[in-house]
Design a protein around this nucleic acid. Structure first.
Lengths: 111, 111
DNA sequence: CCAATAATTCGATGATACTGGAAATGTGGA
DNA sequence: TCCACATTTCCAGTATCATCGAATTATTGG
């Protein structure tokens, strides 16, 4: 649970897209049970091949998990990854606490 | 302090780049005082024109602020924006609390 | 084995993003 | 006013990303 800069960049990049953010939010709402690719495509109105591209992107970034269930591929949110990302942002991009003005920076093992 | 999806996408996109993330972190460490563009360029070893491009990107996304101080343009982190982003991620991309497995999703004013 | 279903991979196209040198802009001192 | 400094804007050139139909790869039922 030690998100490093490169990981953070790819996680941020993965979420920095309208469709992918929507996919991720849908999967978060779905919980550990997840949703089949087809269901997601249907819910968001994205063509299957485009969706597949985005799912792969999110998977590469480690934000979602894939498992097969008979004919369907089920995707689910990896909550640990998001936790790590939020932790990274809070630690490295805020004062450390909760984004206080941070006038008094403490030593922090950067990068 | 109500980050909406489009804002989140642009904020995430702004941070989803090695140089820009480095810039942002540097400015967070610098605190409200901020740093001049030249100082940042020097610290990160990025050519002035490239840096300017990234600073503009971060500024457009609302993550950093610009002010002039004599000949220098001083950039500083906008802590409120980061706070809002973290809030958005926590609310919309986690169970709501702190990324609990979220087996029991509560009603959440999505989007 | 064959047909049907579920998704991915391929491939071509168009759009955006990144980079960095050179020129332009703003600012202050002599 | 003139020059030096601090940055940005302009402009190519290159690279990467996004889209989506068609072809391909799994998986299951008959």
């Amino acid at each position: 649970m030690e998100t490093k800069s490169p990981d953070a960049v790819s996680a941020l990049g993965a979420l920095a897209h309208e469709h992918r953010l929507a996919i991720y939010r849908l999967l978060v709402q779905a919980g550990p049970e997840g949703r089949a690719a087809g269901v997601i495509a249907d819910a968001l109105g994205v063509p299957a091949s485009s969706l597949s591209f985005h799912l792969a992107h999110l998977t590469r970034a480690g934000l979602i998990l894939q498992r097969r269930e008979s004919r369907s591929l089920i995707y689910s949110a990896d909550f640990g990854a998001m936790n790590a990302l939020v932790g990274f942002l809070t630690e490295n991009c805020c004062g450390g606490a909760s984004c206080a003005p941070a006038a008094a920076p403490k030593k922090r093992k950067a990068s």
